[in-house]
Simulated scan of single mutants.
Amino acid sequence: MSKAPLIFDGHNDFLLRLLRDPENRQATFLSDSGKGHLDLPRMRQGGFGGGFFAIYIPSPDPGAGLMEQMDNPPYRLPLPPEIPLRDAQPVALAMAGHLQWMERASDGQFKICLNVAELRHCLENNIIAAIMHMEGAEAIGPDLDALYLFHDMGLRSLGPVWSRPTAFGHGVPFAFPASPDTGLGLTDAGKDLLRLCNEMGILFDLSHLNEAGFNDVAALSNAPLVATHSNAHAITPSSRNLTDRQLAMIRDSDGMVGVNFAVGFLNADGRRSGGDGFDAMLRHIDHLITHLSEDRVGFGSDFDGADVPAELKDAAGLPKLRQALTDHGYDAALLAKLCHENWLAVLERSWHG
């Protein structure tokens, strides 16, 4: 019997857990605490081969009750204010340091990868492969000098915004039902950031970006269009999901989409709870394959940053996802593409140097 393909994942927020409890990071990473979605033992248990580890600057606590609105659609959550560079950069550096520490602490089991050859080597040798990703470019000033520094530290993927605004563009609010057409596009600094990412071979992530910003990237970029953790708006009309028009643009650029496991972006009714099994996720995957082809769809779990289906629970539950895909009729070749081959292929098309 052939070995189940390792899953390479388009997005997780594990570094945020380390940021919030740095004194216990060794136990958080190296031991199965049963908390959150990821740690080294559960990655191993579930066949989690690696993924994009996000540097994300958390917003101030919105207070009790705000996120609970997502269980009572319709909703439109207010966006937090922009975070200044002086506040964001030390946090981003701390998170980059945590990722570097994970490599050192893993005793050869975890590696930050800078190119596709390193990713392939890790997947073939049972080493968890990490891409340093930035979700929201608050830590990169408008002069863009810091982008060179973070690239030297290992940064290979960047989203110009999380949902709040930045100096580079505008994200979508958390809203349902709602269109992603929510405001202005990239700023002049955002267009400069895009050009420099193209020049340096840094993937420019479209997840969280509003429709006008998406259109600007599609018009200006010379790289494939990639949304690391987004779903189908036609199935779940959340502002965070991609319309069929956007999917066609991604397809035509030879890009791809990583399916987000967040229940609120999977459920047709937009609620962030319920939908315990894989049915909603399978509907999104079917739709994305129809509109993108089987060569342009992967996974973007949002582990440690979202509520995922109870049947999955955490990274140790990934064999259940593989089984659900098999039971749904996906053959071994398609399963391998979804699990990691499509991510490696799009990164080969996106990275250089």
Rank of each mutant, 00 (worst) to 15 (best):
K337G: 07
A167E: 11
V217G: 07
G183R: 00
A175H: 00
S238H: 14
P60Q: 12
L38D: 05
L93W: 09
H11M: 04
E23P: 01
L155A: 01
P160F: 08
L79Y: 05
I7S: 09
C122Q: 02
N222P: 05
G201F: 03
Y75D: 05
H291E: 14
V161L: 01
Q246D: 07
P165R: 01
A315Y: 09
R195M: 11
N210F: 09
E118Y: 02
L206Q: 10
G264V: 08
C339S: 15
N125C: 08
L334S: 11
A4P: 13
F299D: 03
M67P: 06
M1N: 12
M200Y: 12
G63F: 11
L312G: 01
G185C: 08
M249W: 08
V226T: 05
G46H: 11
A232H: 06
D327M: 14
P173C: 13
I250M: 04
V297N: 00
G63D: 11
Q26K: 15
S221I: 04
A232C: 14
H328T: 10
D254F: 06
A268W: 04
F110N: 01
D21P: 02
L266C: 06
M1W: 13
G154E: 00
P90D: 09
D269I: 15
F303I: 05
H208S: 05
L93P: 01
P78G: 08
G46N: 07
K313Q: 13
L225A: 04
E341I: 06
E82C: 14
S163E: 11
L193H: 08
W351R: 03
T243A: 10
P80A: 11
L196A: 10
S221C: 08
L318T: 03
D107C: 14
D205C: 01
D21C: 06
L66A: 02
A280E: 09
D9V: 01
V346F: 00
D39M: 04
